[in-house]
């Protein structure tokens, strides 16, 4: 019956303990998370630490446990000869490594740029209303659904110098005068890899951009039409800024994927220095050349390069991954 509005006490806490419900939920959350976290620690955390550790040792494939700590020698060591000349060795002065870094970066930048442009074009097409749109969407899912190894092999066959259909088409169209050894020649190997990668991953880009496009309210365009804004201007002033968040997320996923590329190159252009990427080189050293420690150093460096890139990108692009908070 008594109702009075009280003055706020100096200390606004009369023993407000955490309620049982909240405690129960937090406790449950902890137990729900533990198995996943333990699993991730075992399959990701610990191996990562061990890889980094191996990069500071002289470990070899057959003698993992006898590995001894040798500091930064895998990365850089030097020796001064009697003649007074200093010789530098190690990963940081390894031409093969920097070639691989260059290949990887070149591949990532070119492939993702082209994929972004093509992805936007395909998304715009799919966002338009026309007969058979469902069919087209199904069609572009096919490259995405095909395993990378299979597409590498399929394209390897199509790009074959003697019996490949690509050379045949281009000859018939008069684009080339003689057959090209796409995957074998150092001049064209990277192009071949790019063609296959772009073919395979543009659908992913297109789908993410399409999802972004579909969230743009239609009436914005109606208003722009009434205002007489030219369609090209509409694209650059309305569409692009509004799909930017979706595009930024798609791009970072793709770049991270491109920077670690392994399977396509391993199968399509094996042993070609023109396409050898960081992952391919590191695995070669780890398991084929018996330079386990050196390969570990390469994979460690790769990890930090990618981590650095990601942080800078998220920071500069202000990419928002977390949709909401509840």
């Amino acid at each position: 019956m008594t109702t009075e509005t009280m003055v706020r006490p100096a200390v606004a806490d009369s023993g407000a303990k955490r309620s049982e419900l909240l405690a129960q939920r937090v406790r449950a959350a902890r137990w729900f998370l533990v198995p996943m976290l333990v699993a991730l620690a075992i399959v990701a955390g610990w191996p990562l630490l061990r890889s980094i550790w191996f990069s500071f040792t002289d470990a070899s494939l057959n003698d993992l446990y006898g590995a001894e700590f040798i500091g930064f020698d895998n990365y850089l060591r030097w020796q001064t000869l009697e003649s007074g000349r200093t010789i530098y060795r190690g990963l940081l002065v390894d031409d093969a490594w920097w070639n691989a870094v260059w290949n990887t970066v070149r591949f990532a930048v070119i492939s993702v740029s082209i994929e972004a442009v093509l992805g936007i074009i395909v998304a715009l097409v799919l966002n338009a209303e026309f007969k058979g749109r469902g069919l087209v969407r199904a069609a572009i899912l096919i490259p995405w659904a095909i395993p990378t190894i299979v597409s590498a092999r399929m394209w390897g066959w199509m790009l074959n110098d003697q019996f490949g259909i690509i050379n045949d088409i281009m000859l018939r169209l008069g684009l080339i005068s003689q057959k090209i050894a796409w995957t074998a020649s150092t001049d064209t190997a990277m192009t071949a890899v790019l063609i296959v990668d772009i073919w395979k991953t543009t659908p992913f880009m297109a789908l993410l951009v399409l999802a972004g496009l579909q969230m743009i309210p239609k009436d914005i365009y109606e208003a722009a039409d009434i205002d007489g804004v030219h369609p090209v201007k509409q694209f650059f002033r309305i569409t692009l800024p509004l799909v930017r968040p979706a595009l930024m997320v798609a791009i970072i996923f793709r770049v991270l994927d491109a920077l670690r590329i392994f399977d396509l190159i391993y199968v399509l252009t094996p042993n070609s220095p023109a396409t050898e990427t960081m992952s391919v080189l590191a695995r070669e050293n780890l398991f084929d050349f018996d330079n386990f420690a050196y390969g570990s150093a390469q994979s460690t460096l790769l990890f930090f390069i990618i981590a650095l890139f990601t942080i800078v990108y998220i920071w500069l692009g202000r990419v928002n991954f977390d949709g909401g908070d509840r």
Binding site: S51, W53, R260, R283, G295
Partner: peptide
């Protein structure tokens, strides 16, 4: 999930 898998390859091999 975005990890370069090569970065854990050596450690995973050991495990």
């Amino acid at each position: 999930s975005m990890f370069p898998q090569i970065a854990v390859l050596a450690g995973l091999f050991e495990v």
